[in-house]
Design a protein around this nucleic acid. Structure first.
Lengths: 344, 344
DNA sequence: CTGAAAGCGCTAACAA
DNA sequence: TTGTTAGCGCTTTCAG
């Protein structure tokens, strides 16, 4: 609904058409460049549009075209430490390809995930990027729902046992390497702070930790672990519990970004210094990690690559790619600094 | 398009109606609860929906209802350090009220802002939350466009001279207070690292800085300032330039989050320690600021409040509030730690 | 308590 | 080169 300078109310393409003295279909074709139009009438149409300030109704367009040029992005905002850069790259690639992003927060809860993705599907998104919620225990109702709607989908951040494209970081090897580093430095009383249950990520990182410990021949009884639920508060509590042990650990592996913050806070609350009193390494990097003390030794994920490639894969599916589904692992890289106890 | 177990293709409400042996309008009313329906026919309809896995087409619904239940959120992802928590609270409030969020990145560029908001309007969003791009030099084409579309809008993060609702942090007083603190500690050779040009934020923070300096009776010649363009790289470069001065500053006020990171990095690159060699205070807080050294003394913005109230205001406008436009200042609070040079 | 039918504003096949 | 017209799938008035 737009008024022009003569006070008329111009709402639709047909209004523009009438003013330009042509048919609605001609206006449509001018706007979309979908068929040849005589230059003089093109001018007339453009003039009418210009003078009325007409904007086309994308809803009607989408309904008619069966295409919305919209991608759904469903992710747990809170539990994803990389939320910002992830959204940033995804938005960038999507925009370049002419797509908009509708955001939805799964809150890492299967029930909310299902509801929220339901509304995305109702909105007729052309494709979906999903960081699946944990805790669904093998039932994939949400994913089945997406499949039933025939909406192209790619999973990010966590692998799931479901036939679709998936992009997630490698976890096992990197954590094993991180842990081995602590072991090589002589630590034996070592602890892992693991993430939320039900995430493939959590399992793989925990397994990497135990693999390193086993290879080093450390007795299982020396090894501790606590659940940090993938949040800063959880990490804080987990570390606090570890400090209650009769023989607290001398080295910690924190399995994600948020928990690492919590762990540091708990350590500081207890008056302990890193790495002097306790060594600490963590999965996920921080932009500021090089500038503040302790400078954390981490495994940095390449979220940018993950996000960009996931969108690209999705766009390919949308235009009809029928390549077999693939799981892509993105390899993190180690940022060796001083929180592990190594000199600068 | 959904297939049921008998292999039929069920697409529309009318398909469901046919299967249930009722009219399309009845199905609609069952789905929306918009008129009384005999219980037995309600059951029939629900059964038909259930058995076919029918989902309604929200696009068609929106077109018919002239309402999309969608809010646009346009913001510069990169230049907003609080992007994550802002999106998080906005999404939360919006979802609770039954709205979805479509995201757009302005890249802090008037031209891109205009394009991107154009597509949001075309999509018939019910309302818009916008962090206006800087550098538009008094021309408000984008805002005029939004107004012409009669789409309710609220501005966040930065005030603009335009008649609409606005929420932004207080800048002048808080920066003045931050600067005064440094002055009280005896610093005279003091420098400000200011943000991107064209932002009201930048101007107000700079003015707060100068006001404090003036009140303390410090000669203007003692005072330095550099532009950090609101980014980490910019802050890094600005600090590096400052260190080239014949007489480098002994205290720094960094005007945002990202620049503070850059400043710290530059200081570290130069082998300088905070606060031993240089005192540093910054606008914007960090979640981890309490756990790493130096622990930054900052002015923490209350983005949560800003986001939540902005959405609420927008929702009010959508349902027709005609209260006069208002500008709301959100007061930051000081986090006094040790980077300013004060003991713990 | 229910159905028929007229839109919502656009696209695209078909005809001219 | 252009116009007519039949949808896209839903909501909602108006009749019954």
């Amino acid at each position: 609904m737009t008024g022009n300078e003569r006070g008329e109310i111009v709402t639709t393409m047909n209004d523009v058409a009438r003013i330009a003295g042509v048919s609605g279909s001609t206006v449509s074709h001018v706007l979309n460049g979908t068929r040849a139009v005589r230059e003089t009438t093109r001018i007339k149409v453009l003039a009418a549009i210009e003078s009325t300030g007409y904007r086309r109704n994308g809803l009607a367009r989408s309904l008619a075209m069966q295409r919305t040029q919209t991608l759904g992005l469903a992710i747990s905002v809170l539990s994803n430490p990389y939320f910002g850069s992830l959204v940033n790259t995804i938005e960038k690639v999507a925009t370049t390809a002419g797509y908009n992003i509708v955001l939805a927060d799964t809150h890492d809860d299967p029930e909310r995930e299902s509801r929220t993705i339901g509304t995305l599907l109702d909105r007729q998104i052309d494709g979906l990027i999903l960081a699946p919620a944990g805790g669904s225990h093998g039932r994939h109702d949400t994913l089945e729902m997406v499949r039933a709607s025939r909406t192209p989908m790619v999973l990010i951040d966590r692998f799931l046992d479901f036939p679709c494209d998936q992009y997630a970081p490698e976890n096992y090897e990197p954590v094993k390497r991180l842990t081995a580093h602590l072991l090589e430095l002589g630590h034996r009383k070592i602890a892992a702070i693991i993430g939320a249950r039900g995430l493939s990520t959590t399992v793989e990182r925990r397994d990497g930790f135990y693999a390193a410990v086993a290879e080093a021949g450390v007795e299982r009884s020396q090894v501790l672990f606590e659940e940090g639920h993938s949040t800063a508060e959880g990490g804080h509590a987990a570390m606090a519990r570890l400090l209650q042990s009769v023989e607290p650990p001398t080295a910690i592996v924190s399995m994600n970004n948020a928990m690492t913050i919590g762990v540091m806070k708990a350590l500081r609350d207890a008056g302990l210094r890193v790495p002097r009193d306790v060594a600490l390494v963590g999965f996920d990097d921080f932009e500021w990690a090089d500038s503040f003390e302790p400078r954390l030794t981490t495994m940095a994920q390449d979220v940018e690559t993950m996000g960009a490639e996931a969108v690209q894969m999705l766009l390919d599916r949308i235009v009809g790619s029928d390549a077999p589904f693939a799981r892509h692992s993105i390899a993190p890289f180690m940022r060796h600094r001083n929180s592990c106890g190594c000199a600068d």
